[in-house]
Structures are given as structure tokens and as C-alpha cells.
């Protein structure tokens, strides 16, 4: 069982890493959101495979479905924000969003 778990977690970690790198390096707002989605894929794979390895696949399945519902809400909100940003700046470049400084 652990063998299979190892494989899934390996890929989940790779997905999360790819997403984080994209979030750090990309400048297009939609690309940033896609990177967030990739992180989400990694996390849902991690959750489901953990349940699979423990023999708790039904619970894990319920968690993943809830996670997907959360993701839809999040993506809808984020895309609405992006469209509003675009109406203001006519661009999707994150560098145009530099008026506030961290």
C-alpha cells in the first residue's frame, strides 16, 4: 500500500511545486489563476491518495468533492475580479497592479 501512496504523493508534490513556481513567476493574471488551479490539483490528489492508502477512500472522496465545490466558487470569484481589473486597466499584466506596495 505504501508503495502506491509514495507514487501518488510524489506526483502531488510535483504538481504543487509547479503551481507555486508559476504563481511566483508569471505575470498574466489568468496564468496566475491557472497556477492556483494546478496547486489545487496537487492537493486533491494528495487527499484522495491518502484516503486510498489508508482504506478510507469513501471519506476521502467526500472531502475531494467538497474541495472541488470550494474551487469552483473560488475560480468564479477570482475570474470576476480579473474581468473587473481588465475593465480598469485594459490589460492583464500583474505589473500594472503595482500601485500598492506590500
Amino acid at each position: 500500500m505504501t508503495n502506491a501512496w509514495y507514487l501518488y504523493v510524489f506526483f502531488a508534490a510535483a504538481l504543487v511545486c509547479a503551481g507555486l513556481l508559476g504563481l511566483l513567476g508569471k505575470r498574466n493574471l489568468i496564468k496566475l489563476l491557472i497556477a492556483i488551479e494546478v496547486i489545487g490539483k496537487g492537493v486533491s490528489l494528495l487527499l484522495l491518495s491518502t484516503g486510498f492508502a489508508k482504506g478510507h477512500i469513501l471519506t476521502a472522496q467526500a472531502l475531494v468533492i467538497t474541495f472541488i465545490v470550494v474551487e469552483v466558487s473560488l475560480v468564479a470569484t477570482a475570474l470576476a475580479l480579473i474581468i473587473n481589473v481588465y475593465r480598469h486597466t485594459k490589460s492583464l499584466d500583474v505589473r500594472n497592479l503595482a500601485k500598492l506596495k506590500g
Binding site: G25, I30, L33, I34, K41, V72, I83, Y86, L92
Partner: peptide, 24 residues
């Protein structure tokens, strides 16, 4: 995820098409 979220993404891309290309 593959269906609904993709539709939302494509809708947004269509609505924001006219902007300049973002140089990475």
C-alpha cells in the same frame, strides 16, 4: 473541473482578448 471551470476560463479569456499581450 474539466468542464465548468474550463468554460469559465475560456469565457474570461474571450472577454479580455482585446488587451495587449502580457510579456513574461
Amino acid at each position: 473541473v474539466a468542464g465548468l471551470i474550463t468554460v469559465l476560463f475560456i469565457l474570461t479569456i474571450a472577454l479580455t482578448r482585446a488587451g495587449d499581450e502580457v510579456r513574461e
